[in-house]
Computed example of a mutant assay.
Amino acid sequence: MSEKKPLPLHEYRDIKHTIGNGKPTILAFGMSHCYSCLAMSKVFAEVLEVHPDYQIYSIDSQKDRLVSRDIYKLKEMPVQIFFDASGNEVFRHTGAYKKAVLDIILKKYGFE
């Protein structure tokens, strides 16, 4: 059995234009040395294997600390921020959760 891989990291400046482009978007903020952040990233990577058209981006909060601190006011990790197709923040979660819970949240916020 192969090891699940986390999402590739993106810089906020490279993906911010996708927020509000007509598709729901998730920004998953975390840190490379955080166990819960890595676990959550692997869950999102699993979702993208089934739904490669979803816009889910992993952002390293240490490298993009001004974005995570000043724009999104994050204080703990991991944090997932869900945006609707128009770019409005509709849900924010701090911590990690299992794929079954994520599936419910994705359906509720327009990822279908």
Rank of each mutant, 00 (worst) to 15 (best):
F91N: 14
L27D: 08
G20Y: 03
E46F: 11
L102Q: 10
V67N: 03
I26L: 03
E89G: 08
S36R: 02
G95L: 13
H93N: 09
E49F: 10
H93F: 14
M40Y: 14
V79Q: 07
F44C: 11
H93K: 13
G22V: 09
I71M: 05
I26G: 01
S32T: 13
A39I: 08
N88T: 07
K73V: 02
T18M: 11
A100P: 00
F82Q: 00
A45Q: 11
N88P: 00
S58V: 01
K23M: 13
A85K: 13
V67W: 00
K42I: 03
D103E: 13
D53R: 13
Y54I: 14
H17N: 07
S68M: 06
G87R: 05
A96E: 00
L66A: 02
F44H: 07
L27N: 06
M77R: 00
I56S: 07
H93E: 04
D70Y: 00
D53V: 08
A96T: 06
D53L: 10
P52H: 03
V67R: 04
Y35S: 09
A28M: 11
G87W: 00
S58C: 13
L66Y: 13
H51F: 11
T94Y: 10
A45S: 14
A85N: 01
L102F: 12
H33P: 01
P24H: 12
L38C: 01
I59W: 06
F91M: 07
Y54L: 10
F82E: 05
D53Q: 15
Y97H: 09
T94S: 14
L48R: 12
K42F: 04
R69T: 12
N88A: 05
G20K: 07
G87S: 01
S61C: 08
K75S: 15
C34Y: 01
P52Y: 02
I81A: 03
Y97K: 11
L102V: 09
K75L: 15
K73W: 09
I81L: 06
I15G: 11
A96V: 08
E89N: 12
S36I: 04
K63C: 08
M40Q: 15
G22P: 12
C34R: 00
R65L: 05
Y54A: 09
V90A: 04
S86F: 07
H33N: 09
C34S: 09
S36C: 06
S58N: 06
T94C: 13
D103C: 06
K42L: 04
G95Y: 10
M77D: 00
V43L: 10
